[in-house]
Nucleic acid binder design. Structure first.
Length: 804
DNA sequence: TATCGTAGTGTTTTT
DNA sequence: CACTACGATA
């Protein structure tokens, strides 16, 4: 081949490859086409990092290093050049021959491992890869740290002395286990609350400190106590064949450190490793990644130090700050162009984050245009704040926006209550992400416990949970006796009660114990014979749980409905996995499910969640609520600069979720944990600068003279709302669409108010209608009252009539 | 042994 | 305010 022809071929090949990836800016392109060696992508919020990640993997698998290589596999002739030209002009077909000429050292899909933060993100990655690569994408591994580790441990647990069918403890299980440890070692939780011990131990595991090492390095009373608790806890979990969340990572790292042959296998398996949200990884996760990448050294991490918000969970920002030291020769790429937000929104974000020290430092910019100014609403209290949000949403809907374009983000889950109440009353469909998870409900956890005892009878903790649920006359005394015998024999509880007749100490409870064993035997047999969803129904029936709930009236009915949902969740799982479906597999999926995984962006409802949960998402209209000192930044972070910086990063995350409009709000008084507080406005507002904001004050605040009567009325309102909130959540669970207003609640319903109307309000007296805003199912009526100032009310709820 | 009532307590963010 | 843990009683 002449060198002229070769040059033309190479140039064309480059163009064809680039053309297959849509439009990329030069920095993004650099990131996509860097194939080998360590790579750090510093990706600002909204900089298209997922696109880069997907394209980068696609390039690995499809073209390898062809983009920047002058190697050609095979000999390219004139006709190949012509074929490429045709391809560029969209007039050609990609033949097998061309495909091979287009690639150099392409990576086999099963050599790629992509680690994301949530299952949802992993799923999305997979979907987008399938769209680009078709069936090749099937073999690419995309999962979270935790599920990747579970998969490894399911194969290798025996190297560590754990059974392959180990149970995964959630935080509730961990709490129970630790309480037993406290009892066993006579630890007083006055000196060390159980939760503190657990989080201290979690932190130790994040840093790969073993119980022995913790004991050795403990010098103070408190750390010694932690070390004792740690040791007891680890023993307990080991003998139960259980791992907690932190163990999944910890034990996997241990496995790799202690079994080089095992590590070798996985190094060979995953030669290309990508880690998303790298700023939120812990020391243990860093070790895991570097052990795996140690062989081929092909590691690509994506992250944004400004978005590190999980320090409290052991994440260390050092991982991203020292990537270049950890991986010498690393290439660093910065994505600073934002494709998501308006300049106004980005300015606010930049103004806040620049107050942090110790960051890599970058400034986002966009050519999306100025956009509207960021709004600030100073509400009177949290109800007023909620009302304002509802009215803005109503306004936006009128202008053609969809409900699903709106997100309400808050610092803590407890803040959702008042907003939820208001939305429910106003008939605005909404969905809450997070809070109490479905799988945390008692009845659901109980049935799950039955299932996990079937899968792993060694797990005493879950056995204890269900042995007397429903009541079977097996009380604490019996259980203690059995546990004593088990400890003496060094075996599990289950083995003791199965042979109860051999132990005189259990004589009194022999019959109930035998009955329970019969249930377990039946269920174990059912697990062999029945499909999964049928098994769950069998568990509900045979355990007597259904009967118990049926006897409980209204509350039992909702719980039974929840169990029905559990059965359908199992069915969905079984249908999805087909032959792969297994009891262990389902339990594992349930254990690792996260709140955000259930979020469905297609459903047309407003969505509410914490700012933590919103990481990685974007919305046209974002409400950031509760911008008060003590709420956001939170009370706990007030005295520590490091914690405060984390709050600030969280604020940065919140702001940068918004594409078109950002609405901030604070309340002069707020009821929090049962007490009404007056908090100063958040420092984050000061940092943005009031001059940058479009400020609106609560109308009530201006009317100081009428405050007392309005306050009294509000108080009555509050109690009524609290009731309706409770009954609502009891009825439909914490997630779900708001029920339509019930007939009983309707007061001013059916009247078509219009501006200028004279109205009579039961509490506020006479007034004039200023504005009428219809929102889903109801109407916001803004009224100037003669004595009570301007108020917004819902037509369907307000005690409102037309005056004459 | 089970259930009911009361007193006390702790309240962030989550895989 | 909401949940838990514990104690008294049937």
């Amino acid at each position: 081949m002449s060198s002229e022809l070769e040059k033309r071929f190479l140039s064309l090949r480059k163009q064809v490859i680039e053309a297959s990836f849509g439009r990329l800016n030069p920095v993004q392109r650099d990131a996509v086409f860097t194939v080998n060696g360590p790579l750090l992508i510093l990706a600002g919020a909204g900089s298209g990092k997922t696109t880069v990640l997907v394209n980068r993997i696609a390039n690995l698998v499809r073209y390898g290093t062809a983009h920047d290589s002058d190697k050609i596999f095979g000999t390219a002739g004139e006709e190949d050049v012509a074929a490429l030209e045709a391809l560029l002009k969209d007039g050609g077909k990609l033949t097998a021959r061309l495909a091979s000429l287009l690639s150099v050292n392409a990576v086999r899909p099963w050599h790629v491992l992509a680690i994301t933060f949530t299952n949802k993100a992993a799923g999305e990655l997979k979907t987008r890869l399938e769209a680009m690569l078709g069936s090749d994408a099937q073999d690419i591994a995309a999962s979270t740290f935790h599920s990747a580790c579970v998969r490894i441990l399911r194969r290798e647990a025996e190297h560590l002395g754990y059974p392959k069918s180990f149970t995964i403890y959630d935080s509730d299980d961990s709490l129970r286990a630790m309480k037993e440890v406290y009892k066993q070692y006579n630890i007083d939780d006055k000196f060390l609350p159980v939760k503190s011990a657990l989080s201290a131990i979690g932190r130790l595991k994040d840093q790969m400190v073993s119980p022995a090492a913790a004991a050795a390095q403990a010098s103070e009373y408190r750390t010694k106590l932690v070390a004792t608790a740690y040791e007891g806890y680890a023993k307990r979990l080991f003998s139960a064949g259980a791992l907690d969340f932190d163990d999944l990572i910890y034990q996997t790292v241990l496995l790799f450190q202690e079994h080089p042959d095992v590590l070798e296998y996985y190094r060979d398996r995953w030669q290309y490793i990508l880690v998303d949200e790298y700023q939120d990884t812990s020391v243990a996760q860093f070790l895991l990644v570097s052990l795996l990448a140690g062989g081929h050294n092909n590691i690509c991490v994506v992250g944004d130090d400004d978005q590190s918000i999980y320090r409290f969970r052991g994440a260390t920002i050092e991982n991203i700050l020292s990537f270049e030291q950890h991986f010498p020769g690393a290439k660093v790429v910065r994505l600073e162009q934002n494709y998501r937000s308006t300049t106004s929104i980005l300015d606010a974000a930049n103004r806040v984050i620049k107050n942090n020290v110790g960051r890599k430092g970058k400034t986002l910019w966009t050519d999306n245009g100025e956009g509207d100014r960021v709004c600030l609403y100073r509400a009177d209290n949290e109800q007023d704040e909620a009302a304002h949000i509802a009215s803005v949403i109503g306004q936006n809907l009128k202008n053609g926006a969809h409900l699903r374009d709106h997100a309400v983000l808050y610092r803590m889950n407890a803040q959702s209550g008042p907003i939820e109440t208001y939305f429910a009353r106003a008939g605005i469909p909404y969905k809450i992400v997070g809070g109490h998870r479905f799988f945390d409900r008692k009845e659901v956890k109980d049935i799950i416990s039955y299932l996990s005892v079937i899968a792993n009878p060694r797990d005493d903790l879950r056995l204890r949970r269900i042995i007397n649920e429903p009541a079977r006359k097996i009380g604490a005394a019996t259980l203690d006796a059995a546990a004593g015998i088990a400890a003496g024999l060094g075996c599990g509880l289950m083995e003791v009660i199965a042979e109860a007749q051999n132990y005189p100490a259990l004589g009194r409870a022999l019959v109930p114990l035998k009955n329970f064993c019969a249930i377990c035997d039946d269920l174990t047999a059912a697990a062999q014979e029945q499909p999964l969803d049928e098994l769950v129904s069998t568990v509900i029936d045979r355990s007597g749980y259904r009967q118990m709930l049926e006897a409980q009236g209204e509350e039992g009915r909702t719980r039974l409905e929840n169990l029905g949902e559990l059965v359908s969740s199992v069915k969905t799982y079984a249908d999805e996995k087909g032959d792969e479906a297994s009891l262990e597999g389902y339990l594992e999926e349930v254990a690792l499910i996260s709140d955000i995984d259930g979020y469905d962006e297609e459903a047309d409802t407003v969505v509410m969640m914490t700012m933590h949960a919103a990481k990685g998402l974007e919305f046209d209209y974002v409400f950031l609520v509760g911008l008060e000192e003590g709420v956001f930044p939170g009370e706990m972070s007030r005295y520590s600069d490091e914690d405060l910086e984390e709050e600030r990063r969280l604020c940065y995350v919140g702001i940068t979720r918004a594409k078109k409009e950002l609405y901030l709000s604070c309340a002069r008084t707020r009821m929090i944990f049962g007490q009404t507080k007056r908090n100063p406005e958040s420092r984050f507002l000061t940092e943005i600068g009031e001059g940058e904001l479009q400020v609106e004050e609560s109308p009530v605040a201006a009317m100081a003279t009428t405050r007392i009567s309005a306050g009294a009325a509000r108080q009555r309102e509050t109690t009524r709302q609290a009731e309706s909130f409770r009954s609502f959540t009891a009825r439909s669970g914490l997630t779900g669409t708001a029920p339509r207003p019930t007939a009983a609640a309707k007061r001013g319903a059916g009247i078509a108010f219009k501006p200028g109307d004279l109205v009579e309000h039961k509490v506020f007296g006479r007034g004039t209608v200023l504005k009428v805003t219809p929102i889903a199912g109801d109407t916001i009526v803004e009224i100037r009252f003669d004595t009570a100032g301007v108020k917004k009310t819902m037509a369907n709820y307000a005690p409102l009539t037309l005056a004459h």
